[in-house]
Design a protein around this nucleic acid. Structure first.
Length: 811
DNA sequence: AGTCTAATCCCTT
DNA sequence: AAGGGATTAGACT
């Protein structure tokens, strides 16, 4: 500001600009410099003629009374007569608390023309204005005029006052709001910090050593995530406040108020609208370094890196917690992906031409999601499927089942060869399954020796989405856990975020949406089965859903007690339970027998035995396994393609009248059904007890327990000879654990071509797997002989041939 | 160093 | 031109 500019700017009511400049100069001189020094140039200046005598008096004043008083005095020196009169009035009225010096200076009022630059309205005026403001913060012109007269202020002063008051109000509100936000933020941050501190170096209370972060709850992990989020928020608020105050505030260097009683804050919020905020005494905590270490380590391209370092040595607490953190982050990302995969439509999932299925649009997929377990290995192919269905189970029960390895296997007996929970990384919040994170291993099977089981290690993470809606996601962590003694030999399959969303429906059913997304080694799959696997019917979402539906239906019927109407014989509820249990064991055993589970590798039978069909043979030595005969058991299985629809093949194989066409046990005649237990809505799901009606002297005491299961993904017919006393025991509700079984039977799968793009096979053929188990020697240590292998493979070959003949199609 | 207040500048309506 | 947001200067704490 130049002096010239000041002088010509003020034209309104007496040259405001000029007043400003002068008062400015006076003020500066009286405070910043010694009065005698400054008075010289001021007096000497020719352009300030009006400033002579007041300047002198000011100087004197300041010399006598000190700097502060001099400032006020100088200002009042310059005031107008009217203003002074007002001041007198005001001081008479008595409220002069803050302006004690002012009343003393009233004597100096010799310059009526000049208006002071700085002055405050008298307390009285302010009181009046404030009172008016309370009723009406926005007075119109008349009201303002009235006020100005009453308070002997200029109209513009009143206007300014209200204007300023309003803006002040606004800023106060704003600041207040900011303060609340910041306090809340700080409180949470401090809380998190202390918890984090507590978890980072947990000391064992007994030995004082570093304790492992064993059963830590997910809450800690969540807090870390939350921490990162809060930090962001804090930064945002700080920058906001910074903007407001015109000064940047560092989130990390600001002192943290300890979380004190909330009431302080509440009172502040509740009682004061402006000012008078209950300030929480700031207690300084150590500055936060490495606040979000790990949290901000970004997408998961580097997921394997930290764990690799860990591979050799033992994990100390920090590394372990770091690892848990990585897992949690992976799980959260996977969960996010699963939910979106389950819910998103067209750009991501493209309906096939016939509209019956949908395929994943990989371009869109890669655009939409981070590759949370890294890029696809080139040797693997992708499989992504989605399916939805209503299942008679509530969401909570399904979640419980999924989170328990044993129950999980039980729920999907034909899909899961075995499963274990390796480690529970987080045990959930508040005793619920919400937030449970566990490390699992599973083998997923297709019922054929020609398709290797999928050996997967994965994280399973459970989250409650809303009341009655849950999500359970699986994601592979192959290669991350090097500390495991048995890393996957060669990664032949990995699961990208897969799993299910389950939502309760009002009728006791749940809507289940399944997403199965895997990458697998197609070369390991026999060419016969590749179309099936590719179609997703083998290990895709569809199979999970229909298996679940069937199993839940079966369980629901087991629970319900009013089902005996379709039984051909009267079986007690406990008897039927026992029967079903035994049948299930039989079927599980059969599935294990025909699949290439890693528990029993298929022997590549050496010795130059040439088996005509592609029959796989394996043995197991039973020593004292209850429920299986001791000795050497030979399992043999093969799969063939048949030009017949799966449904027709299934109907043929379960037909007792036609059984003699392929089963030597039927003695050439039909089978008679002794007992029948419905095991599902469809007639194809039954457990029955059969007896060859053709009389045979030596087999009179022979019964056959048979279970048939069917759903849209495939069917099985499994049977095993059982003896009469054992079945009496079971049917009267006795324990079936010690009933020995050697199941044989069939698995029938669609060939995967019928519903595919190819129109050549409209109905589609079947893939028939035939499996036999025979006891070749009572001695567990006995050697397998060539003869027995030949016997069993002959048996298989003959059976297949007979079936082919029966369905009128030699090949 | 920061707050409060009166006032100005400058832009929108 | 009135009103309001942004800004400023000065006093105060």
């Amino acid at each position: 500001m130049s002096f010239g500019g000041l002088f010509d700017s003020g034209s309104g009511s007496g040259g405001g600009g000029a007043r400003t400049g002068l008062a400015d100069a006076v003020h500066r001189s009286s405070t910043a410099m010694s009065a005698s020094n400054i008075s010289q140039p001021l007096l000497a200046s020719p352009s300030l003629p009006m400033f002579n005598s007041p300047g002198l008096s000011l100087t004197l004043q300041s010399d006598m009374e000190g700097t502060g008083a001099a400032g006020k005095g100088g200002a009042w020196d310059l005031d107008s007569g009217r203003q002074n009169k007002e001041d007198e009035n005001e001081s008479r009225s008595g409220g002069s608390d803050n302006l004690g010096g002012l009343s003393g200076d009233n004597l100096e009022q010799e310059n009526p023309r000049k208006k002071k630059r700085y002055h405050r309205h008298t307390p009285h005026q302010i009181e009046e204005l404030e009172a008016f403001f309370k009723d009406c913060p926005h007075p119109d012109e008349k009201q303002r005029l009235e006020l100005s007269k009453r308070l002997s202020l200029e109209a513009r002063q009143v206007k300014f006052w209200f204007q300023n008051r309003r803006t002040q109000m606004k800023t106060q509100m704003e600041r207040h709001e900011n303060m609340i936000l910041r306090q809340e933020n700080d409180k949470l941050r401090a809380e998190n910090l202390s918890i984090r501190e507590a978890t980072r170096n947990p000391l064992c209370s007994n030995c004082g050593g570093l304790a492992m972060l064993g059963e830590g709850s997910l809450e800690e992990q969540h807090l870390r995530i939350e921490n990162a989020r809060l930090k962001d928020e804090l930064d945002r608020v700080c920058s906001l406040i910074g903007k407001f105050l015109g000064k940047p505030i560092s989130a990390l260097s600001s002192p943290l108020p300890l979380p004190m009683s909330d009431s302080t804050l509440d009172l502040a919020v509740g009682n004061n609208v402006f000012g008078g905020l209950g300030l929480v005494t700031p207690a300084t905590l150590p500055p936060v370094t490495d606040f979000t270490a790990g949290a901000t380590s970004g997408p998961f391209g580097t997921v394997t890196t930290p764990a690799r370092n860990v591979g050799t040595g033992t994990l100390d607490g920090v590394d372990r917690s770091q690892e848990r953190f990585v897992f949690l982050e992976l799980a959260l990302t996977a969960m996010d992906e699963l939910v979106k995969m389950a819910q998103m439509e067209d750009p991501l999932w493209v309906p096939t031409l016939d509209g019956r299925k949908e395929t994943l649009n990989y371009e869109e997929y890669l655009r939409s999601f981070p590759r949370c377990i890294g890029a696809k290995p080139v040797e693997l192919v992708s499989e992504a499927t989605r399916a939805t269905g209503a299942v008679i189970i509530n969401s909570l029960a399904l979640v419980e089942t999924l989170m328990d390895a044993t129950r999980w296997v039980d729920m999907f007996p034909s899909v899961i060869a075995r499963a274990t929970t390796i480690d529970v990384i987080s045990s959930g919040m508040g005793g619920s399954r919400n937030g449970v994170l566990q490390h699992m291993h599973a083998e997923l099977q297709v019922l054929s020796p020609l398709v290797p089981v999928r050996d997967v290690r994965f994280l399973r993470f459970c989250k409650q989405l809303t009341e009655g809606a849950w999500a359970v996601v699986d994601v592979s962590i192959d290669g991350i856990r090097d500390d495991l003694s048995a890393p996957p030999p060669n990664m032949s399959c990995r699961r990208l975020p897969s799993g299910c969303l389950v939502q309760d429906m009002p009728n006791g059913y749940s809507k289940v949406t399944w997403v199965e997304h895997a990458e697998y080694d197609e070369a390991a799959v026999h060419p016969l089965f590749r179309p099936l696997v590719r179609s997703g019917m083998a290990l895709g979402a569809h199979r999970w859903v229909v298996s679940l539906q069937r199993r839940c239906q079966s369980l629901a019927m087991l629970m319900s007690s009013s089902l005996s109407h379709d039984d051909t014989t009267t079986i007690t509820p406990s008897g039927r339970r026992s029967m079903l249990k035994l049948a299930q064991r039989m079927t599980d055993n059969f599935c294990a027998g025909v699949c290439a589970s890693s528990a029993h590798e298929w022997n590549n039978l050496s010795g130059g035995i040439n088996i005509g069909e592609d029959v796989r043979v394996k043995t197991s030595q039973n020593v004292a396994e209850p429920g299986e005969p001791p000795g050497v058991v030979l399992s043999a299985a093969t799969s063939v393609w048949l030009p017949i629809a799966p449904q027709r093949l299934f109907d043929f194989l379960r037909n007792q009248q036609l059984r003699s066409q392929w089963d030597i046990l039927s003695n050439g005649g039909p089978m008679e059904e002794m007992a029948h237990i419905a095991n599902g809505k469809e007639t194809g799901n039954t457990v029955s007890l059969l007896r060859a009606s053709a009389v045979s002297a030596d087999h009179n005491s022979m019964l056959i327990l048979q279970e048939t299961c069917t759903d849209a993904s495939g069917s099985v017919v499994v049977y095993a000879p059982v003896d009469v006393p054992a079945m009496h025991l079971v049917m009267s509700g006795g324990d079936s654990t010690y009933v020995t079984l050697l199941p044989s039977g069939f698995a029938i799968l669609p060939d995967g071509r019928g519903s595919g793009a190819g129109v050549t096979h409209k109905a589609g053929g079947s893939l028939l797997t035939v499996g036999f188990q025979i006891l070749v020697n009572n001695q567990p240590t006995a050697k397998l002989t060539v003869e027995s292998v030949e016997t069993v493979s002959n048996l298989i070959s003959c059976t297949v041939e007979k079936i082919k003949a029966a369905i009128h199609c030699e090949a």
